[in-house]
Design a protein around this nucleic acid. Sequence first.
DNA 1: TATGATTTGTGCGTATGTATA
DNA 2: ATATACATACGCACAAATCAT
Lengths: 244, 244
Amino acid sequence: MNDNKYELIYRDLANKIATGIFAVGNYLPSENDLRRQYAVSRETIRKALLALRNEGKIQKIHGKGSVVLGTRPALTSPELKGFTEIAASLDDPTNSRLVQNDSVYVDPERFFGREETIVRANAPGAQPAVLIGRLREVRHQPVSLDRDYVLTDIVPTLPDDPAETSLYAHVEETVAPISYAEREITMTQADWDDHQFLEVQLGTSVVVIRQKVYLTDTRLALLSESRLDPRQFHYREFVRRHLT
Amino acid sequence: MNDNKYELIYRDLANKIATGIFAVGNYLPSENDLRRQYAVSRETIRKALLALRNEGKIQKIHGKGSVVLGTRPALTSPELKGFTEIAASLDDPTNSRLVQNDSVYVDPERFFGREETIVRANAPGAQPAVLIGRLREVRHQPVSLDRDYVLTDIVPTLPDDPAETSLYAHVEETVAPISYAEREITMTQADWDDHQFLEVQLGTSVVVIRQKVYLTDTRLALLSESRLDPRQFHYREFVRRHLT
DNA sequence: TATGATTTGTGCGTATGTATA
DNA sequence: ATATACATACGCACAAATCAT
């Protein structure tokens, strides 16, 4: 949590949109009104509005004002959050079960695409990692089978109870803030684990979301793979055509 | 194309990153150097860098500089572009075949999720639209079956040859700039058309990307559905954890 | 049609704070 | 400690789009 002015204003406005105080389709107060209300400069207001715009919460219309567009939630969404963090914002009961916890070697270069990520210790590009496999349940139904490869060189420790704790929170507390990720979504054939845990038929398709998660200093901290039942998969995002 | 200073600088820097003049892993010149090189104020430079950062092309590190991260291309990517526009940037030969061209009524409220989009003319929420179905081929292989529902009330005319022309370009020339879209990715069972055109087996899974495409004034201009062979589907995007 | 008021967009300058080396 | 580099914040001027008169 930052205490920047524009971020505080951003959160206040985002909250007022989420709770309907600023209703969808209506205009926000003008930048000059907001400037007076928050007693800041116009540039500070504009930074807050830009952040809302980039997330698709408002649309700025030249000469008119800022229209409230609405809000989009989902379990699998463009936000860079861990399951534990998303679960905290859901009403439904959620559960994580540890199903794997091994020391392995991985080659991050082979994580995207359809190659094998786990390699021999002496393979070129091999890095030591801890593999944590967790089955995620919402409303007591399995929704995803997650495997995180935590790079030991960057993240030397792990939470005491990996099933209960947010990996992201642990990394940010013990190493450095998580900053960004490259994400890949593909489809593949269900394997035995998918069949066992996600209760999908062998050989049918499952959705695979892979992420390379980086710290603020661009160091790669972990690889994560999430396998989902295609019947439950729905991914929503907001995309813009232009910078401005 | 805008002729704003910061956008020109953005494009110049993006181009130098794409062509390797600024190599991955290296630092860009400092904001002060860039300010001198382009003979603009520091804020203008910072706007250009912010745009690069938001697209995952650079990472700004406080007190150090801006590291070049790299570039990510793909046929199905987070950019809001039509197939014709993406095809223009590919080396491979591409082709579009018109397979459908009908007048229908749609209910945009029913476009996301798993409901029927095409409704009766007198249904509540029904809007007139032209359905344009096109089979897209790359390297003479079918890659996607696209259906665009162009809302007649907003876009009254259509290009003369819908198979060859970019719908997006036509909308922007005759109506208003396209600004943003809500996108949904799901999976469903292949139907007869998928089997015929995409050459996938009946009943196996296909990827469905649906988009609601809006103009700068927030009017909904068209609905588009893209159905893809899951074996060829790979979607890559860049996501950030924080605003700053 | 034209004009002025309002609102957002772009650009510049300056000052201060904070992180890095 | 000092210099460098990025981050935040304020203020100002003018351009461009919109709308009511």
